[in-house]
């Protein structure tokens, strides 16, 4: 391929366009600039706070860095950086227990959402074409109501004198009301309920465009319906499963509202710990350290997810 170089535009033209930003670049630059300003910059501020010390002041921390001291002093301080707040996170077992508990609750919720969401998405994808937009609208419909109100509603359902217990008692399924509210189970129910659409939508998108002839081909070559599902449908829907699982898992780990409203005092979740550090303890530096570690914990699965996507793209689907 000797003449590969010939495909680049001639020098002259490059020269002339030097100051013209290509339209395509401009279009992609806007969201990146947005992220830079509203994600990366706050992230560095939080990171900076996490390295400082708590103080009774407004804001309640003593900054380590102060640009007014000049670059030399900055450099000096950078070398003597204190990761004390991070060390503290490892010393008090509240933090790592919160992390683990969050991961556990998020993982269980994701699994349950998958078990409920997959058949739902499958049935939607197989429904008559005229029905599908309606079914899709029904999945999205809850978003039209405030998330907070929907989670509050679950209190009414799950509490001791709530709808669920009343129904079960009425039908004689149980003789004593169940304690569900203020337990981890209530939190899991809340997460599964709230994030189910995020599981269903990518799965539906994946299953809906799957070629039905592939399943027929598997049947033709000797598979029962169940086997054809496991050998063809399931592996081909893997990108949808992965996408849906991450869309549920990642926000569920950092979830605050659901454990706060439905969880008990025993329910440890990192979002709640973060909140109490910030607002109850007013310990901004430790709270910032918690947030930074949470991000690091979540970045690993995100990187894994993107790797998977890339591999899936290379494999053709």
């Amino acid at each position: 391929m000797k003449d590969l170089g010939d495909t680049s535009p001639p020098l002259l033209r490059v020269e002339r366009q030097r100051w013209v930003i290509p339209a395509r670049l401009a279009v992609t630059a806007i969201p990146y600039l947005w992220l830079l300003v509203f994600f990366l910059a706050p992230f560095f501020i939080v990171f900076k706070i996490s390295l400082s010390e708590v103080a009774i002041a407004i804001p309640p921390y003593r900054p380590v860095f102060d640009l007014s001291e000049g670059l030399d002093v900055l450099w000096e301080k950078a070398r003597a950086l204190s990761f004390g707040n991070y060390v503290w996170l490892t010393e008090d077992d509240l933090y790592w227990k919160s992390y683990l508990s969050s991961l556990r609750i998020a993982a269980i919720s994701t699994l349950i959402a998958l078990l409920i969401g997959y058949p739902l998405a499958y049935a939607m994808a197989r429904a008559p074409a005229a029905m599908r937009p309606i079914l899709l609208a029904l999945v999205i419909l809850p978003f039209w109501t405030s998330f907070l109100i929907r989670v509050y509603a679950w209190i009414g359902i799950l509490k001791r004198e709530g709808l669920l217990n009343a129904t079960l008692l009425n039908f004689g399924v149980i003789s004593e009301p169940l304690t569900i509210l203020n337990t981890d189970i209530a939190v899991i129910i809340g997460i599964v309920y709230s994030y189910l659409p995020f599981m269903v939508l990518p799965l539906y998108a994946n299953l809906e465009r799957m070629d039905h002839r592939l399943i027929e081909a598997a049947r033709d070559l000797g598979c029962t319906r169940v086997k054809a599902f496991w050998l063809v449908t399931a592996p081909l829907s893997l990108p949808g499963i992965v996408a849906g699982s991450f869309l549920v898992f990642i926000p569920a780990v950092g979830e605050f509202v659901i454990p706060d409203l439905l969880g008990g005092s025993e329910t440890l979740m990192i979002g709640r710990t973060l909140w109490s550090e910030f607002f109850a303890n007013r310990d901004w530096p430790v709270a910032s350290a918690v947030a930074i570690v949470l991000l690091a914990v979540l970045i690993l699965p995100i990187v894994f997810f993107q790797r998977h996507q890339q591999r899936a793209d290379e494999a053709g689907r």
Binding site: D211, E216, A217, C223
Partner: peptide, 16 residues
């Protein structure tokens, strides 16, 4: 799956 016939599908339906 129990018929001794096989089919070559339109647009092939190869497993991707």
């Amino acid at each position: 799956h129990r018929r001794p016939v096989n089919m070559m599908f339109q647009s092939y339906a190869l497993f991707p």
